[in-house]
Design a protein around this nucleic acid. Structure first.
Lengths: 194, 194, 194, 194
DNA sequence: AATGAATGAGAGTTCATTCAT
DNA sequence: AATGAATGAACTCTCATTCAT
């Protein structure tokens, strides 16, 4: 493995270690020493790659956000896309419970960290725009009932998915119940459900 | 004022100071010294009333949970009760933005604090039970359309309200849009809206 | 001893410990932990009295400057005052070799620390003013020969005394030789010399 | 350029960078990384040329001392030599303010570094010897008045010049005033002064 | 009931130095 | 001859907690 590749791997290892640490202990319990140890290096090495704890956190943020990219695929009818998105997010959060924890931590941190605030606000805006487009096209093409205004419906979908990120939701069936009901209301439910 | 009453006031002052501190800086930024200073006493005094930081946090938890008690009043038809509940919660969160921040912090902390975990889980269960009862009676009495299963609908209502606690939601119109849509779907919307 | 007095003593002990540490190891080797240990307290206690290392240094600066106050006493004829000043400074530096070391450290630090820069500049100005007044009066009253301009002579006196602060001077007889010659030139030498 | 010459240049570049760093930030602020960066090489490369920080400092010491060699030229009558020396040193310190700063740093370090101590002590001794010879010959040849003992006068000259190294002196006119007065007292002043 | 003073444990960060390449 | 990567040791500063008064 080339030196470049080794260094890149180390960066990723550190980010991954920090990601898991945040998921488990929150920002409150994030310790550079623990992260370094988890990645199998000295604290000083961590600071070689990330000059400050803050910069390490930025790395984690980017990593976490990128995990959602695959949940929206532009294939199939709007109804299918929407249903797939709902399920993909839900599945992602179930498969990787840490992601929800980290995202929730970020959501809280946004109140105190302008950079995160901006990032999340931008993401939410783009998300809502996409969702509204999907809803409008779905209704026009006739295979989705959503008789009401797209902004409101998109908002409910986002709110429900966002709530599912919170760890509290993962210990009760509420999340799944909410998403199931959502599919019915939207008229995108399909017989088979994995 | 009796000695008892003075002591009780001091306790409340400290809890209030901690409550505001958590809302502003999160658990991550909660400092006993700052809390004591805000309450106008010495740190040692704080520890006289609350032996540990943890016990102070318990006090804040109780205080925060109690703030929601008034949002569910057993008056009027189910549809009215439901609408009033939605609006009362929304209004509470808008009037006292700190409450949302603190609740969100608690929701995250639940993952690491069994006591909070249990408290929240119990609260959610009771909340859902109440909501389902309301929905069922509303449908039976004919003034609510919610044609579908009460568990799902209750879950969506709770998820939406829960999402509204997150600070991210308060910087965008998504929260209000979602709640408005919810009222329409449930068929509990009324002409006037304050 | 009252609580106030104990606290004041602790402050002085810490300053004294820092003062000796600077004299021995320079600013370069000044360690808060060592200072605290020398004063018999925990590092955290040091930070209780001096929030930052910098504030501790300010304390040392004040202490060091104050040591010179007794070297200029407004008693006797100008020639006597001048001679006494020269000798008092020399004696002070010999009795307390650390003072020279600390002052020299300060002189260097002035280049990087505006506060010290201002303090020293002000002190030097006042010092020169005093000295010139003394010289002029001495010449007018006829008991000092200093036939030349007072600014130059004052400058030489100050330069010589300043050089004596440097540790290099204390390991060779140059300092004493220079001061002896100065007395002769100024015409303030007296038969007895301790 | 031969490999030898390249290596020699690198050594000099590193010493020069360290020299400037010490002048600007003192020993306290001397960082091998910064020195290497300033010289355009990696820290590891610096350590290839200078195994330890200490050895780099030795290099700087030699460089600094060598800067004074040209201030004493054995040409002309003693009075002229002396005057030229005074002025050459003063000019050197004015033209290259960093030299004074570095020398002052060394003077302080001498107290903790036997090697520097010895070097400086030896230099001072030789300096004084030269100066006394000059004074004696000057008086004998009749063109200098210095009626008093040569050791004392030499000491004053050295003390004054030494004091001029301190940065404090360079922000006030005291240095120049002292040197001017010295020339008059020694009777070596000349009409023209550049 | 209240406080000033004190502390142990630990936090993030820095730095001279080393080593494989 | 030169470097990127790595590290141990140390640094200043913080914080919940304790205790004598």
């Amino acid at each position: 493995m080339s030196a470049r590749a080794v260094a890149e791997k180390r960066r990723l290892d550190l980010i991954s270690a920090a990601y898991h640490a945040i998921a488990e202990h929150g920002f409150e319990g994030l310790r550079t020493r623990d992260v370094a140890a988890e990645a199998g290096v000295n604290v000083a090495t961590l600071h070689y790659y990330f000059p400050t704890k803050e910069s390490l956190i930025r790395g984690v943020v980017d990593h976490a956000m990128s995990r959602f990219q695959s949940t929206l695929t532009p294939r199939g009818a709007p109804a299918v896309q929407l249903r797939n998105h709902l399920r993909a997010v839900r599945r992602l959060l179930l498969d990787e419970p840490e992601l929800g924890a980290v995202m929730a931590e970020l959501a809280l941190r946004a109140a105190r960290d302008q950079a995160i605030q901006d990032l999340l606000a931008g993401t939410f805006l783009a998300w809502q725009r996409t969702m509204r487009g999907l809803l409008r096209r779905g209704v026009k093409e006739g295979n989705m009932r959503a008789e009401l205004d797209s902004a409101g419906v998109a908002a409910i979908v986002m709110a429900t998915l966002t709530a599912c990120m919170l760890p509290v939701m993962n210990t009760s069936p509420i999340g799944d119940q909410a998403l199931g009901q959502l599919e019915k209301w939207l008229g995108v439910a399909s017989p088979a459900r994995s």
